[in-house]
């Protein structure tokens, strides 16, 4: 029998295990449709705020000489109210709405905007490393995480995912706090705070100076985090960080992820990367006697 690549992340059922990561091509329903048609099991929106944000001036992203990317886009986004209207007609694409805010009320307000939309899950961005008062600065504050997750869980019945990163509070503690407050799943990781300096001009390249590192250089770190989370807690995990081939994706399943997200690999390999990874996973499964993704999850921990 052909192996099945459908998977579930807690109560979230996905036909395919590879999703679009937040912030990548994530601002238009038309583009979501194209990505879904090209193999994305779900799409995560750009992190949305209460109001539209312009983000930082360019340069906001560039590639490192030996691969990988550093970005400080500055969470530019059209705002939750506009976005909710845009996706209201959708009922075919599994959309996960990523939200960013500073206080519980921000999240409550935004979730209300999506009342008339079909949403697969919300992903709370507790981990963007380059914007003040949101993202990682929220994720680093356990009391705030507690309040936000609690309020969000009381606002909606839709599954809530917390996306974590590497900040000053140990990410395992942030995961623990989120689980205590009833989080449904964890996405690990966001980009890792980084910078680059141009030696000819003797300046940082990004307009914001600091940004987040993504792509192949962070894969071993993200993989380690997924392994650690799944070793310590019983919570569904979505692996993210540097995944660009089926082999990378399988590594994350074996480490304990139920699904994966890809971002930078789209810049490196374009949209065909979804189908490439999906079919590679399938081939690996048939060759290794797996008939479901579930059978692969966390297998590396047993050895």
């Amino acid at each position: 029998m052909e192996p099945s690549i459908s998977t579930s992340v807690g109560s979230i059922n996905l036909e395919r295990p590879v999703m679009l990561a937040s912030g990548i091509l994530g601002i238009s329903l038309d583009v979501f449709r194209r990505l879904h048609r090209n193999g994305a099991g779900a799409v995560v929106t750009k992190s949305l705020s209460k109001e539209p944000w312009e983000g930082y001036p360019n340069p906001t992203i560039f590639g490192l000489k030996n691969g990988g990317w550093i970005n400080a886009v500055g969470l530019s986004n059209p705002g939750a109210p506009y976005f909710a209207k845009m996706i209201e007609p959708n009922n075919e694409i599994p959309i996960i709405v990523s939200l960013v805010g500073s206080i519980p009320e921000d999240f409550e307000f935004m979730i209300k905007q999506f009342e008339n939309c079909k949403i697969t899950a919300y992903e709370l961005n507790l981990s963007c490393p380059h914007v003040a008062k949101v993202g990682l600065e929220v994720g680093d504050d356990p009391e705030l995480v507690k309040k936000i997750v609690t309020v969000v869980k009381n606002t909606t019945k839709i599954p809530i995912i917390a996306k974590v990163g590497l900040g000053t509070t140990h990410y395992l503690d942030t995961v623990g706090t989120a689980i205590e407050c009833g989080i449904d799943a964890i996405t690990a990781l966001n980009t890792i705070r980084a910078m680059a300096i141009n030696v000819d001009t003797k300046r940082p390249i990004l307009s914001n100076k600091y940004g987040g590192l993504s792509g192949p250089p962070i894969k071993p770190i993200a993989l380690r985090c997924v392994y650690e989370i799944s070793s310590k807690y019983d919570v569904p995990i979505i692996g993210c960080g540097g995944i660009s081939t089926w082999e990378d994706a399988v590594e994350f399943f074996l480490a304990g992820a139920s699904a994966v997200q890809i971002g930078s690999a789209i810049g490196d390999n374009w949209i065909g990367v979804f189908d490439d990874i999906n079919s590679g996973i399938k081939k690996y499964m048939s060759e290794n006697g797996f008939s479901t993704i579930r059978e692969m999850i966390g297998v590396a921990k047993k050895s």
Binding site: G23, I24, V31, K46, G55, T60, N71, S76, G267
Partner: peptide, 11 residues
């Protein structure tokens, strides 16, 4: 912003 198909701003 990116010029490479990552940020989505040119859709």
């Amino acid at each position: 912003k990116c010029g490479v198909g990552i940020c989505g701003s040119c859709c």
